[in-house]
Design a protein around this nucleic acid. Structure first.
Lengths: 150, 150
DNA sequence: GTTTATGCAAATATTTTGCAACGTT
DNA sequence: AACGTTGCAAAATATTTGCATAAAC
């Protein structure tokens, strides 16, 4: 089952309704993977197909999608909340974000490798972990190459 | 050298000035460890000793302290930026935040254990990591105990 | 004495809300 | 037909900025 069908099913189960706007907002995220779009950017993308949409609908739908677990939020310290499709991983574990401090680019790293740390935390503190968000700050390959050329 | 002296030195090196307000703002963070205060909360704490201070000064000083690396910001998805003293670790690695999804409490976990992951990322992608932020979402010991008692 | 910092108020910017009209089931 | 959803405008919230005054060096 794809995202859209799953979205419809979740809505039905909750007595909520599928609308053109909701579909287009989820679609804008599906069709722009790795883009970490902001609400405003999503609004602009949807506007191309549905110019009458209001920004309030975008915010309401993004909140709904987040609550349903279909999308994740990402804070990049730039004053905007960024959104991306959630990965339906086996156990809620998703990719890490690598933020380049030189060019601002965001890369993704698939492998999790957090189990050892999570086990240690659970054993030591009794805190049971269900999800995590990891941001790495550094310099990407391209910026490092450019730098060393100078 | 403690935080405050280090702050004064950094200011001097940059031709900036130490003021009562700047001192009180750093002090409010030093004296409230593990509190993850917001700008508004810091403003209220400083107000007790310096009632004439303006919130703009708090924001300006927090930005300055962040740029100087003396404090770190923490996004908790509640619409506020939270601040905490930076740990002057050997290599910029700091504690992780454990956020309880039941009671909202934030615990800290000292051990880093991110080296293996960072090495793998650097080897695979060429992205050189200098810092990271890790947030774990789950349920704290107390909430889990309460739950199982029901 | 020169330059930087402050406090206040106004301005920005992002996100939320109220409500009448509309669309979906 | 009933109820949830939308779009618009206004409101709310967090943060920033301009500027005259004050404080630090």
């Amino acid at each position: 089952m794809n995202n859209m069908e799953y979205f419809k099913e979740l809505l039905k189960n909750k007595g909520l309704k599928m609308t053109t706007q909701r579909g287009l907002i989820l679609e804008s995220l599906s069709e722009n993977p790795k883009m970490h779009l902001t609400a405003e950017e999503i609004y602009e993308i949807v506007c191309k197909k549905q110019p009458e949409i209001g920004i309030a609908t975008v915010y309401r739908t993004l909140k709904l999608l987040t609550e349903l677990g279909l999308i994740d939020t990402l804070d990049m310290d730039d004053g905007f909340v960024h959104y991306e499709l959630a990965e339906n991983d086996r156990d809620g574990h998703h990719h890490h974000h690598l933020i380049c401090m030189s060019c601002g680019k965001i890369l993704e790293f698939k492998e999790d490798l957090m189990e050892a740390l999570e086990d240690k935390i659970e054993m030591t503190t009794g805190f049971k972990i269900y999800d995590h968000k990891v941001k790495m700050y550094g310099y990407c390959k391209e910026c490092r190459t450019k730098q060393s050329e100078k």
